[in-house]
């Protein structure tokens, strides 16, 4: 079972690293092209040209004037469409599986987790956290408005993603470098700090969680209430109390699911439709519960009282 969980985690990590590597190579190639050097089989587009968020900030100008904001090209609109389609299907999977900045934040987070262990990702008091999470909507509104008004790519001045892949070029503003540094340092304490509090694209994609087709669902009938899903969630979502996760912060990383964190099979899944209703104490149809009272054993193992489903402290 653990092997399967590792495979699932590795698949996501591999996908993330593949996209990260691709962006690094494209960025390098773009800068090398001015010296007449080309890395074979890799594009040399500017990062602005292949950023799906560029499509978002250009929409107003595209609709009103038929042109795109400077430095943004049609490819951004195409990528925006792909990401939106993916988001309708499975939520902000772009954030959890593709975004290179998110990947780097996660990698930094692995270091932070080793340093701070259980206190990692729990530094921000919930009272503050609750309100800070609205910040990214403010950023989104500001970026879209100022871009529409100025027809300039204003976000580049503060964009840690652009800074991360261009810091060596001398083209990055000091503000963006500062925000990148704060993001990387912050990732040692908080998982995905930029994604949680400031990312305008994450804010927009997060809204798709309200309408997505495939959602993260918890089967209350088989849930042993061990809260492993809560602890695994990088975005601090309380999965253990939700039947459908519709939280706008979900990034579809699947860390909470029965593939990775949840110890009971077919209990937390990315799915469409509903779990087959099962009595709370009955063994589930999943492979791990096929021999006798699997759920009961799990509950006992995790220190959970079956009768009232309260975690025994």
């Amino acid at each position: 079972m653990k092997g399967k969980k590792n495979v699932a985690a590795r698949i996501r990590l591999s996908t993330q690293l593949a996209f990260l590597l691709l962006i690094v190579l494209i960025s390098l190639n773009h800068n090398l092209s001015s010296y007449g050097i080309q890395i074979p089989l890799v594009g040399s587009a500017s990062l602005h040209a292949i950023c799906p968020f560029g499509g978002v900030v250009s929409v107003y100008q595209f609709v009103t004037l038929g042109s795109l904001v400077q430095k943004v090209h049609e490819a951004s609109l195409v990528l925006m469409g792909i990401v939106f389609f993916l988001a309708i299907l499975a939520g902000p999977a772009f954030c959890g599986w593709v975004c290179p900045l998110g990947t780097v934040e996660e990698l930094m987070g692995k270091v932070g987790r080793r340093i701070f262990k259980k206190t990692y990702n729990a530094f921000v008091p919930p009272v503050w956290d609750k309100y800070l999470r609205y910040l990214r909507y403010g950023v989104l509104a500001w970026v879209v408005y100022t871009t529409a008004m100025t027809m300039q790519l204003v976000f580049v001045e503060v964009d840690p993603y652009y800074a991360l892949f261009n810091f060596w070029t001398g083209e990055v503003s000091l503000t963006a470098m500062g925000i990148l540094a704060a993001t990387l340092i912050g990732s040692l304490f908080i998982e995905r700090p930029f994604c949680k509090y400031l990312c305008p694209y994450g804010a927009l994609l997060g809204l798709f969680n309200k309408v997505r087709v495939f959602t993260i669902q918890r089967n209350p009938a088989t849930c042993i209430n061990c809260k492993a899903c809560d602890r695994a969630c990088p975005m601090n979502i309380t999965v253990s109390t939700a039947d459908h996760v519709r939280d706008t912060q979900c990034i579809t990383c699947l860390k909470c699911t029965s593939e990775v964190a949840c110890p009971v099979s077919e209990t937390v899944e990315l799915m469409v439709g509903r779990f087959t209703a099962q009595p709370a104490d009955a063994p589930s149809a999943g492979p791990d519960q096929s021999q006798g009272s699997g759920v009961e054993k799990m509950r006992a193992k995790s220190g959970v009282q079956t009768a009232n489903r309260e975690v025994v402290k």
């Binding site: 999977a93 495939f214 799915m271």
Partner: peptide, 12 residues
């Protein structure tokens, strides 16, 4: 009812 597991989501 339909599930999407990690391999399928990655491929998707």
């Amino acid at each position: 009812k339909g599930y999407i597991k990690s391999p399928l989501l990655g491929a998707l």
